[in-house]
């Protein structure tokens, strides 16, 4: 199993680290997910899922302390990219708050919620 913790750039207290296992990429996000912070995360994520071997993207949101609708866009965008090559997206560790926002957006009809 490979594991390469990575940061999202200077002065940004949101953090992304990931772990690849076969065709599954687990991405752990931490900090506040707003429009400002989602930008660098999206760029880094897209570079990671450019690897055609990735078929299952798991967002581990345990460390997310705040999220607004920018988080919905981040997940939907990656879902579209993965779905185009027959992949899928799951979410794990959503706090009740994040869960409320995802439910509101109907996200669980296209992505799986892991316990």
């Amino acid at each position: 199993m490979e594991s390469f913790p990575e940061h999202c750039g200077e002065g940004n207290d949101s953090m992304l680290s990931y772990e690849k296992h076969r065709d599954r990429l687990t991405v752990r996000l931490a900090g506040e997910l707003d429009h400002e912070r989602v930008g660098p995360i999206r760029a880094e994520l897209d570079a990671l899922i450019a690897d055609p071997r990735v078929k299952h993207l798991v967002f581990d949101l345990t460390g997310v302390s705040f999220m607004d609708s920018s988080g919905i866009g981040l997940v939907i965008g990656r879902y579209k990219a993965l779905a185009r090559r027959g992949g899928r997206v799951s979410v794990a560790g959503a706090t009740p708050r994040v869960d409320k926002i995802f439910s509101m957006a109907g996200l669980y009809s296209i992505i799986e919620k892991l316990a």
């Binding site: 999206r42 866009g73 957006a105």
Partner: peptide, 13 residues
């Protein structure tokens, strides 16, 4: 830009 279009829905909720 991948805005979700859910901003006002979130505010209203």
């Amino acid at each position: 830009d991948e805005r979700s279009g859910m901003g006002f829905t979130v505010m209203e909720s």
